[in-house]
Amino acid sequence: MSAEAAGISSVATAGPGAGWALLASELSVLFRRLRTWAMLIALAAVPILIAVAVKLSSRPATPGRGPLFLDRITQNGLFVAVTALVVCVPLFLPLTIGVVAGDTIAGEANLGTLRYLLLAPAGRVRLLLVKYAGAVAFCFAATATVAASGALAGVVLFPVGPVTLLSGDTISVGESALRSLLIAAYITVSLLGLSAIGLLISTFTDVPVGAMAATIVLSVVSQVLDNLPQLEWLHPWLFSHHWLGFADLLRQPIAWTSFGENALLQAGYIAVCGALAYAKFSNKDVLS
C-alpha cells in the first residue's frame, strides 16, 4: 500500500511526462511486490529442479522420451534452459501471467486505489496502456528468469560445449546464447495475447482472483481445444497455437515463419482485447 501511495503522489503533478512517471511507478510497484518475487523464484526453481533431478538420477534418459532435449542435458548443460522453457510454457508461465494480468485493473479496484489513480489527469487510456506495459514487462521477466536460471544451472552442473540443433548441425556457445535470447523473445511475444485477455477480463470485475482464474482457465481451454483434431479449422486462431513453435528457432537455417505468424496472431488479440478493454474501462463507473 505504501508503495502505491508513493506512486500516486508522484504522478499527481500532471504533465506530458505523467505517462512515463505512471509507468515507472507501476513497474516499481509490480517488481517490489512480494507476490511477484515469489512467482519469479518459483519459475527459477523449475530448471534447477530439472537439472538436479537429471544430475542425481543414475539412469540415463531414453532419447525420444520426456520433454525436448531431456536426454541431452548430461552432455551439454545449455539444453537445461530449453527443456525448462518447454516445461514452463504450457502451464507455469500462463499461470503467473494470469495472476499479473488479471490483477491489473481489478486489483486496484479491489484495493480502492483505482479512484485515486484516475484522480490524476493521466486519463483512463493511459492507465490502461501503463497497466498493459507492466504485464508485458512481467512476461519478459518471467521468461528471462527461466532461461537465465536454466543456463546457470546447466553451466554449474554439466559440461558445456557446442550445441546441436534439431537439424543435426552444431553451433558455437556464443550463437547458442543468441538463440536462447531469440527463444525468450519468442515466448514473450507468445504471451502478449494472454496478457491482453487478462487485462480485458480485469476491467470487467472488481474481484482480482476472479479475473486471474478466468485468464488461467482460458489459457488451459485454448490449449485443450488446440489438441482436438475435430476443431482443426479453429486452431490457427487460438492464441496458444504457436506457443511451442519456438522450436523453429532451433533449426538450421532458422524457420522464421512461425515467429511471424505468432507475432501477427498476438497482435490481433492485442488489438481486439485492447479495443474491448478500452470500451469497457472508459465506460466503467469507478465507485470504490
Binding site: P63, G64, L68, R72, L166, S167, G168, L244, D248
Partner: peptide, 25 residues
C-alpha cells in the same frame, strides 16, 4: 519439420546422411 523435432536427409555426392532429432540418431 515435425513439432519440436526434425528429420533430415542430406545428400552430398556419394554420401547420404539421415538424421532424426527425436532420438538423436
Amino acid at each position: 519439420l515435425d513439432p519440436m523435432a526434425e528429420r533430415d536427409l542430406v545428400v552430398n555426392g556419394g554420401d547420404a546422411w539421415f538424421y532424426n532429432s527425436a532420438d538423436n540418431s
